[in-house]
Design a protein around this nucleic acid. Structure first.
Lengths: 132, 132
DNA sequence: CCTATACTTGTTCAAGTGTTCAAGTGAGGG
DNA sequence: CCCTCACTTGAACACTTGAACAAGTATAGG
């Protein structure tokens, strides 16, 4: 049906092409259409990357109940203030948290609740997997 | 109310403790309760980490339309077969994809649709942010 | 068998990450 | 005005990743 013998042969002449070509070209074009552009894929990956560290996951969760200052966060997580500040700055670059100053203190809060939804989905997934 | 003057003083004697302590201990205990264990945070971070790469995002999207063999994936994404295989193995360790063999071919498919939900949420978030 | 194909795995090395310590900034109190 | 406190920043380091190439395994066909 969707097979195109001659075309498959022509393209298979190039490198990195296996014979599967002739079996389902339709599947390949569907996939091709679903794949995001390099730029979009990079943005998505950057967002995930910002979350992808145990410490940052814990920070985001800690902030789920409301804003906290740096020293409170460091105390809750048992980290040095410096390490906490560094991780917060990474989260801030990705707009996952925001800060406000009040005298000597700096209070951080979630930039967007959607992050919590992502974390919740993932947590649920993990417990499902464990149950199975 | 929930303040405990003496306790605050005692604990503030230790390092890494600032005076904010006495201002809102309730906030801190709420946060403490919301923070996941090291083990859970590590699992969540590992899942995000597996997704956190442009190539892997693209692979997951490509598989959203159905299973594909390695050579098809490599062709769709314009990667070498080896690089594709490497990334697939990373995804497989986290159970984000699964594989089945059929003769010489190995077909990969999504291990769990929930990943697509995560990617969609993130994509939506990015376009909202852009609009704002 | 032997070879080709489809994929996997190991290795090497450059680039990136996280932690710590030390120095810097900026608001507030004495 | 100086000092302290709360935080940020920079730099050095140990460690992790990713990319590319080479060698390996497994199946099918001759």
């Amino acid at each position: 049906m969707t097979r195109r013998g001659t075309s498959a042969k022509t393209r298979a002449a190039q490198a990195d092409r296996c014979g599967v070509f002739s079996t389902d070209e339709k599947r390949v074009s569907l996939a091709r259409a679903a794949v995001p552009s390099d730029a979009l894929a990079a943005s998505i990956a950057a967002a995930f990357k910002a979350i992808a560290h145990p410490t940052r996951v814990r920070i985001l969760r800690a902030l789920s109940e409301g804003e906290l200052c740096v020293c409170e966060i460091s105390e809750v997580l048992g980290l040095s203030v410096s390490a906490t500040s560094h991780q917060l700055s990474l989260l801030k670059v990705q707009r996952l948290v925001q800060s406000r100053s009040d005298g000597k203190l700096v209070y951080y809060s979630l930039g967007d609740r959607f992050v919590l939804a992502l974390l919740d989905d993932c947590t649920r997934h993990l417990s499902d997997e464990e149950a199975a």
